[in-house]
Simulated assay, not measured.
Amino acid sequence: MPLSSEQFDRLANGFPGLGRDPASVRRRIEAMEALLEKLFVVPGIRRPIGLDAILGLVPVVGDIATTALGAWILWEARNLGMSKLQLTRMAGNVGVDAVLGAVPLVGDLFDFAFRSNSRNLKIIRRHLDRHHPETATIEGSFSRRARF
């Protein structure tokens, strides 16, 4: 039995981060970008890598999977109402990553250096900060000194 749009919205409101509101979309995209680009840090060089670089080592299937996950971020951005120019830039990032990432060995090094999902997240954050400022989050640590 398919759900109507209203039924889905009521159901989604019960689960944090599942809704269609900009704050939920932002959390989902940030989580996906962290999974694809910053899953863990490589010891010795202190460079974060994620599923994009790891799955890129698997010929064909890995590149298709990471391109699909990058396209999902693009789909979420489209649902936010981003401009065609922004979506085109983001699609270009995913496309460059897909085409050059498919080249054996060179593509694996390229995946390690060119972080298309991080670039796309930056574009989405700029859009959300401008059009939905209530979704903004403070990054990094925050410390406050007491004044006496």
Rank of each mutant, 00 (worst) to 15 (best):
A23R: 07
E30Y: 02
A31H: 09
A31K: 12
M32V: 13
E33F: 01
L36Q: 09
L36F: 05
E37L: 07
E37S: 04
F40C: 09
V42D: 06
V42N: 06
P43E: 10
G44F: 00
I45S: 01
R47T: 14
L51C: 07
L55V: 00
L55P: 00
V58P: 01
V58L: 02
P59T: 11
D63I: 14
D63K: 06
I64S: 09
A65E: 05
T66G: 00
A68N: 09
G70P: 02
G70Q: 01
L74N: 10
L74H: 08
E76A: 04
A77W: 00
R78F: 12
N79M: 15
L80D: 10
G81D: 14
G81Y: 13
M82G: 12
K84W: 11
L85R: 15
L85M: 14
Q86E: 02
Q86T: 03
M90E: 08
A91F: 03
A91G: 02
G92P: 11
N93F: 05
G95A: 05
G101S: 05
G101V: 07
G101K: 04
A102K: 09
V103N: 01
V103E: 01
P104E: 10
L105C: 08
G107A: 09
D108R: 07
L109C: 10
F110C: 02
F110Q: 03
F110N: 03
F110I: 05
F110T: 07
A113E: 00
R115V: 15
N117E: 06
N117H: 08
I123A: 08
I124N: 02
H127Y: 12
L128R: 04
R130P: 02
P133R: 00
P133S: 02
A136D: 14
A136C: 04
I138G: 04
E139Y: 06
S141R: 15
S143G: 09
R144C: 14
R145Q: 09
R145M: 13
A146W: 08
